[in-house]
Write a protein that binds this DNA or RNA. Sequence first.
RNA 1: GGACCCUUAGCUCAGUUGGUUAGAGCGUUUCCUUGACAUGGAAAAGGUCACUGGUUCGAGUCCAGUAGGGUCCACCA
Length: 910
Amino acid sequence: MAEISKSYEPRDVEKKWYADWLKNDCFAGRVDASREAYSIVIPPPNVTGVLTMGHVLNNTLQDVLIRRARLEGKSALWIPGTDHAGIATQTVVERELRKQKLHRRDLGRDKFLEKVWAWRHEKGNIILEQLRRLGASCDWNRTQFTMDEHYSNAVLNVFTELFKRGHIYRGKRMVNWCPVSLTALSDEEVIMKPSNGTLFHVRYELVDQPGRFIEVKTTRPETIPGDVAIAVHPEDPRYAELLGKKVWRPLNRTKIPIIADKSVDREFGSGALKITPAHDKVDFEIGQRHHLPAIDVLNPDGTLNELAGPGLAGLDRFAGRKKAAELLKECGALLGEEAYSNNVGYSERADVPIEPRLTWQWWLRYPRIEEAKAAVRDGHIKFHPERWSKVYLHWLENIQDWCISRQLWWGHRIPVWYRKDVDREKLTEADLRDPAKVHVSLKGPADPENWIQEEDVLDTWASSWLWPFATMGWPDAKTMETAGIRYFYPTSTLVTGPDIIFFWVARMIMAGLEFMEPGKPLEQRIPFRNVYFTGIIRDNQGRKMSKSLGNSPDPLDLIEKYGADGLRFGIISIAPQGQDIRFQEERIEGGKNFCNKLWNASRFRQMSGPAGDNSSLAAILARLESSKFDADDHAILQRLVSTMAEVERCFREFEFSAAVQALYAFFWGDFCDWYVEVSKAKLQDESTKLNCLAIQDLVLRQTLLLLHPVTPFITEELWSQLGYGRDGAFLMRDVRLETAAEFTATLDTKGLSINRGLADSVEKLKQVVSQARALKAEHNQASRRDSSFLATAADADWAVLQANLAKLTRMCGAASIERRDKVDGAPAVVTPLGTLYLDLASSVDAGAEKVRIAKELEKLTQHIAGTEARLSNPAFVGKAPPAVIEGARKQLADQQAKRAELERLLAALG
RNA sequence: GGACCCUUAGCUCAGUUGGUUAGAGCGUUUCCUUGACAUGGAAAAGGUCACUGGUUCGAGUCCAGUAGGGUCCACCA
């Protein structure tokens, strides 16, 4: 065994072990009937993506779950992959083309797609490479891409099936149109943003009563040429006599009717609403009810077209708005303007206001809505934190059909062909189902020359909603068998952000229910059993991390600086359940420091004595001698067991940061700060040395196992260096972590049972040490081992002190601790095991000493008063549980004894 | 307009079913390079648990309300 270096250097260790794990196929998910299956599918990052802090959090959590599952003896599978990200990827490649002054139309569809594929092959795996640096133990041989042939096959299969089952239709409806991406978007891809605009007051002159006007307020005067009516509420007395009359539309002047519709809000503005069916969803519905035409005055790119009339045609919509206001002013129709703030829908991708636009699109009536609700409501799928289920259910209650077609080239082209002689603008629902007019299949028609394929592709989410089973080979029976879908599906846990609960989580549930194992009960068709929602990572000012703000650190820089384990440990420790995360680099630094502490504790063990047989838990236990156990041995084993139990609880309840904090407190606080320090005395004594080393070996072994899911690299390295592994075996793959219960039972059967009483007595020793150190600090004594202490103690207490004297002397920084019957004039502290005096050569400042003790006495007296008050309250004594009352009585007795001793000390000072 | 979340030490946050004197990390102050670790050790300072009521023997914890901050949903032009 080579000597361990003085500080932990992650770089080479990480590289070495990751390569070793890969070489030995440690990440492979295998069907193994003798083990419980545990599976996760990665939320596929965009192929265009680079690793963000969000990815780090999300994927570290998944890796933690997967690695813990392996240690628990489960057969674990983590499927990685990427998403083709239609709009984002197409935009990236189009931007490249623009540098060469080319547009995708210059290349044509096929040539353009070749370019995208080339880009994908060159750059599309960057993010997966970065995940490897993080230590992600994905089964890389199963890496998936949503545009892979078999995956595409699944997507198109689902389309044709859902079409057959009547869930998919084509319709001309109002959609959210992105004038930059030139495609329709789903409602979920539209973000409402408050915007400061202008509300224009416009008057429309009555045709048969010149000089009389009806007034409306609008934020969009440029759409006035598209007005086809003015609507008022049917019961609005102000306008009753105007119903049925006509007014002059002030732009592109023509006559339009005044109509009545109940959807008009009488309270808003003047109570009259201009109706522009082509440019507003409500107006469109009113238009439908009243059989009004829709006049579309916009081009797809958001410029005004010739229907907008001279003066406006050709302008961009925002320039057109200004111009329209000017034109209205010129003709006297503009009564005024007021500043106005309202919510405007923005395209999530392009970050520009969307246009409601009337277009032909493909729509999906979601399948299995009721089952999807039941799956979560009845607990077959558990959300963590649970409260997100309410958001989920609310969305399903109000669900709208999904616009699944996109006017893009990069994506799954819709497998629909139109007979050349049919007019697509006039296809009815019945025509769609007529194979003589429309062909829907994976392979296409037998006589392609007579057909034209649909140009549109599917929404990216209409492929990723199949992720949990399409990545396991669906729908091909043989591939599914190889992938082990019967074993690994439903997956165990999905780790994702609540921001895609509608986009992805809800839709995956519906897809799983619709397509998996038809006829089987719901709990076998759901895609996952648990969903863990991470928080959103914010910067230290609380802003979302984003590329444009430049406030997101590069995770790879952090790995360089703190090591992958440090980053992982840090990010998990600041990620409490369900709360957003304020990123602080200091916490990552803390992760690195923890790794260094672990490293050095192992180094201390190695330097403390010869290596024993560490090859198995049984081998280490065989080296323990219970007859040599002192209170500290019992205490550290007890804390080890309780930490194991706490970590188990944390994993059961998805409290990962609590698990990390428990491990930190145990290892740093209990092991390093106490046990290792007392070891220094125990190791001096040949009779206790070997047992003490074996305890250290045992604690280190269990700690490495518990920590491994969070800090995989350093634990694998130390596992190897400290001789825990057999040749060719890996901590991550070949070791099973005992449960706390199993561990305790093993100790019992080996005659190594933990003595609770002895273990608890360490608490008193710790207090003695802490108080002694404080006393020294109070009197400006350096913490070196050079102070003399005297003690007055009852026989029983002195016996405890004496039994631990060597350790205590060392821990207190004492040259000696001697018992006396009586000590006068020395500064003292009252400990649970007697009074401890600092034997100062120099004279003591009695005044300062009196102040210090008096202060402590005052504080104590307050507590005693509180305790006495409680105990003298008959209601408390009558109603509180006996254990609580007993505790209070004991506390009172201790406090009173301590008070008496402090009073005595005070009196002795004169 | 509806729903949900948050408010605890200078900062970022824990605090499980109500039960001794409310914790951690970072930061601050003092001391310490003692044979694992200065990426460290020891000690200390620092909190009317946002506010107001209520339930209870007992409330940071449960209930109601108020204030401030945040998120999501919603077709008010």
